[in-house]
């Protein structure tokens, strides 16, 4: 699969950072605003897929080696292990149940501030392990969904001129 026209490439390159920043914002503010790991990861993976479709798989696979596909899948596995590892840490600390939120309302730790009740201005430094789980799931979804598109491009890299 070859690339698209120069107009599409330019517009995609200009708009790609904004999509990525929006997706990372959705991931990072998952415990405050609508969205979360899956939604933000889908947005970031959409931006990456847009760039890949604009530039074509021939160009992309000229830049990437099979090693990079392995790195992508390693990142996905890191996200999965981080998610389930945080879940298992709940068995060790606190009240010792699976998916226990062991970091909430502990002032000494990251994301441990006590939230003000009611409709107040949101504080990003709250919610215990929920932001960490959002980051893990976001990494997993970015790598997983982009890996699917990247493997499609890898399978069609030999079709020149189509």
């Amino acid at each position: 699969m070859s690339g698209m026209s120069k107009i599409v490439k330019t517009i995609s390159s200009i708009i790609f950072p904004f999509i990525t920043i929006y997706g990372l914002y959705v991931i990072a503010h998952g415990h405050l605003t609508p969205g979360g790991g899956f939604q933000g990861g889908a947005v970031v993976a959409s931006g990456l897929a847009m760039l890949l479709v604009a530039y074509g798989s021939v160009w992309t696979m000229g830049k990437l080696k099979e090693k990079h596909l392995s790195i992508n899948q390693t990142l996905e596995s890191v996200g999965a292990i981080g998610f389930i590892g945080l879940a298992f840490f709940g068995l060790i600390f606190g009240t010792k149940i699976f998916f226990n939120n062991f970091l909430v309302n502990k002032q000494d730790y990251l994301f441990g501030a006590t939230v003000k009740l009611g409709e107040t201005a949101a504080n990003i430094n709250t919610a215990g392990i929920l932001p960490l789980m959002n980051f893990a799931v976001g990494l997993k979804v970015i790598a997983g969904l982009f890996g699917i598109v990247l493997l499609m491009a890898y399978a069609t890299r030999l079709k020149e001129g189509k």
Partner: peptide
């Protein structure tokens, strides 16, 4: 349901289209 809306816009409107476009161009 803004959560579902973001997920639908990301997965349904962009990623599925990208996969279809790659498959059609091949």
């Amino acid at each position: 349901a803004p959560d579902v809306a973001i997920a639908q816009a990301g997965v349904g409107a962009c990623l599925t289209t990208a996969i279809f476009v790659i498959a059609i161009r091949a």
